[in-house]
């Protein structure tokens, strides 16, 4: 070894080493730097969640409570009037947050459970399981999912359970693709090989080495898939083959009150009524898209490690 003076010490080798911060401190900093769109989105999501959870408290009337006057105008008694058989629209909007959003959340969760697990299995296996699943998914994705859903609903009928299972299975194909793609990139990492060399079991490698590293894209995808599922279910309900009456649901509320729109020339408020549930759907998807857009921007920025 050279006897040169030690100009080097490992601890002093700083360069541009990042500071150590806790998760919450980092979250706070990120939030303070976030654009208005993301903050707006987070606020909307929060309000929807509160409304959905405490629907019976906020709603002035019951979900299926019928009043004598159908198509009642907006008034202090019925804030947004009543629908074609005399149910309070405002109350049904609030219950709709619970039903429509709840069903969409359940569907998305199921889709992630199926697609995520299979995607991970395919990424690790990389042989016949991967081949089989990937080909099956290719075929399923060769049919537009709304069309496929319509075919399946015509066979099995439109119950909530059927709806959730059918949409979840169809949507899990996209979750599968993404999970597989992201996980394949992680599986080839040296730290996964290092764990294999150490002799770790498959479960440990999946749980500790792979899963934590594919979470950010999966979380973003969860938001996007939720929007997609939510819009698909809303579309199906709007078409009359989704969530069935008397369950309060935004998609079918639009359909039920659609004829009011042509009254807008005479009473603008009445004309706006069918747009309210549609706007409720749009607002939530916009909010989620804003948050996801920011999140994606954020996580992809971190990956650069400037």
């Amino acid at each position: 070894m050279t006897q040169e003076k030690n100009t080097y010490s490992a601890a002093g080798e700083v360069g541009s080493v990042l500071e150590k911060r806790t998760f919450w401190a980092r979250a706070k900093i990120e939030l303070s730097k976030s654009p208005w769109t993301a903050r707006f989105g987070l606020l909307v999501i929060f309000i929807y969640a509160v409304l959905a959870i405490f629907a019976p408290i906020f709603a002035p009337y019951g979900e299926a409570e019928v009043f004598p006057e159908p198509y009642a105008a907006w008034s202090s008694e019925h804030i947004f009037g009543t629908d074609q058989i005399g149910r309070d629209i405002f109350s049904r909007m609030i219950y709709g947050a619970r039903n429509t959003v709840g069903i969409a959340v359940a569907t998305t969760l199921l889709a992630f459970l199926i697609g995520g697990a299979l995607g991970l299995a395919a990424a690790i296996n990389r042989s016949y399981i991967d081949q089989l699943l990937s080909r099956a998914v290719d075929v399923l994705m060769a049919i537009p999912s709304l069309i496929f859903a319509l075919v399946l609903l015509s066979i099995f009928g439109s119950t909530v359970t059927n709806l959730i299972i059918i949409i979840a299975v169809l949507d899990s194909t996209r979750v599968f693709r993404l999970t597989r793609a992201v996980a394949v990139n992680v599986v080839v990492m040296d730290y996964v090989e290092a764990a294999q060399l150490r002799g770790e079991g498959l479960g440990w490698i999946m749980r500790k080495e792979i899963l934590p590293n594919i979470m950010p894209p999966l979380i973003a995808e969860f938001g996007l898939r939720f929007c997609f599922v939510f819009l698909t279910i809303a579309a199906l309900s709007f078409l009359g083959v989704g969530i069935q009456p008397p369950t309060a649901d935004w998609g079918s509320m639009v359909r039920d009150n659609a004829s009011l729109i042509m009254f807008a020339q005479y009473d603008l408020k009445a004309g706006l009524t069918p747009l309210l549930p549609a706007a409720a759907i749009a607002l939530l998807t916009v909010a989620i898209n804003f948050v996801v857009d920011w999140f994606l921007h954020k996580t992809s920025g971190i990956r650069d490690e400037q």
Binding site: D190, Y191, L197, R198, G199, E209, P212
Partner: peptide
């Protein structure tokens, strides 16, 4: 095959990689 080796055989041979970045789990 790696699977056929004992834990002891795996322990005594260790490996250090070129890219330390990808050799460590960024979440640990």
């Amino acid at each position: 095959r790696l699977e056929d080796r004992t834990k002891e055989q795996k322990r005594i041979i260790q490996m250090i990689y070129q890219m330390a970045d990808t050799a460590m789990n960024p979440r640990q």
